[in-house]
Write a protein that binds this DNA or RNA. Structure first.
Lengths: 238, 238
DNA sequence: TTCTTACTCACTATTTATGGTGAGGCATGG
DNA sequence: CCATGCCTCACCATAAATAGTGAGTAAGAA
């Protein structure tokens, strides 16, 4: 029964500490849920991409070689979505996208798919994907049935990916001070230094010190860069 | 049984189309799962805050009046987390935080709590929270048992919140041109106009036109503002 | 207590950004 | 064909940001 599979999988994932173990977890899910492919792909907080799962290395090479990353409706579409998506709902109208899908099928991927996008606290962005070749109706039914399981599984994957990442970049978290955050927040809202200083009831000179120190902490080259980094790092919210 | 409750709740939520309905859904969960409070709080893509749930208006007023938003370890801590968190695991070491918790208990909130952070595609940030007054052990057990349900419920809440948001800001999506996006992306990476122009192999004057037109499209007051908005709107990625 | 971190302010010359306008070329779609 | 939007470039005066250092106060942690 589905619940048991889920529990087993989460049990095995809860001990995953390396990329290889995530890989094996993906294979386990593929077998337990009887789908062609299970893939987890993520972009960490410094923009590096990782992937693991059951796609063949031939398909992965092909995908990268053809720059499908910048064409793939799954990647592009999910970036603007929160909710899990059946590939059929995506926009396959462009020529490049249709070519890619044909190509994918030749490599044993698709045409059915189900992808769950997830976002982390520091701009991390991940996709948990199931791919299969059954019919539209069968796939619809399958998704309906397994969707909840898959949301939970994708959560567990993400947690593991974030743990991996934290272990690698051990908390380089440049912590901004309260005033630095307030300053960058106001600048991100379009205020200039004079206005921001007035709003914070400090002199413009003081405010400038905050901008500078924030810049240094964030390793930013100028104010705009600092704001972009602080936003991406989740240190400020506009 | 737990599964039935979940199905009922999701059934009722799936028809929610207003803030009031989300509110009622929160109340239903409170009653079905027998906890003191259920609260859903989110920040939309333009930085506006919304909340709904079972906190009393007295506590909400108190919370806002005392600026607890900037002290609350739940808000601050979850912003840097992906995984659901038992409040006990958060950092309550600051004086302000402890005061807040005492205050919250006086208003019937806590001391136990469980919060699930979720992020949307355009910088939306949401917290789904359960609060209760049972003992540490009882709470631990409760969470262990209901965690999966709650992750699924928080997903459903988020989906509804995003739908609400989309209905309100019906695709005011200022579409930037390719060059405008490239320009803002380079500026977000800390380049100045001269460097960015060189990288794009256009004159600095031309580049300035892109910055200006992007600014106008985004309704931004200056370059930094434009970059922040483009980032928040997912039009550029750093 | 002592040490650290955050917060506050000042000074000045130099570099950059801003705002608005005008204008030609090129592609697309009604 | 003509309108629209995109890409390209130029000019110029003014406003704003930048860089680096020095220094005092206050609060909190060790």
């Amino acid at each position: 029964m589905s619940l048991n599979k889920l529990v087993n999988m989460q049990e095995s994932l809860s001990h995953a500490t390396t990329l290889e173990e995530l890989q094996r977890a993906a294979e386990t899910i593929r077998d337990d849920y009887n789908v062609d492919h299970v893939v987890y792909h993520w972009v960490n907080s410094v923009g590096e991409r990782f992937g693991c799962g059951t796609y063949t290395s031939e398909w992965v090479d092909r995908y990268l070689e053809k720059d499908y990353l910048y064409i793939d409706p799954v990647i592009l579409g999910c970036f603007h979505r929160f909710d899990p998506v059946n590939w059929k709902q995506l926009d396959w109208s462009s020529k490049g996208a249709r070519e890619m899908l044909r190509d994918a099928c030749d490599y044993g991927v698709g045409p059915q798919g189900f992808t769950i996008p997830v976002r982390g606290p520091k701009g991390q962005y991940a996709l948990f994907t199931l791919a299969d070749s059954r019919s539209d109706d069968e796939w619809e039914t399958f998704i309906e049935e397994k969707k909840k399981d898959m949301i939970l599984v994708s959560h567990t994957f993400n947690q593991k990916a974030l743990e991996l990442e934290e272990r690698v970049f051990q908390l380089e978290a440049a912590q901004l001070s309260k005033r630095e955050r307030s300053t960058l927040t106001l600048l991100a809202k379009g205020k200039n230094r004079a206005q921001a200083a007035q709003e914070l009831e400090i002199s413009e000179n003081t405010l400038r010190v905050y901008v500078e120190s924030a810049r240094h902490k964030l390793g930013a080259l100028n104010t705009t860069h600092a704001v972009a980094r602080a936003l991406a790092a989740g240190q400020i919210v506009v």
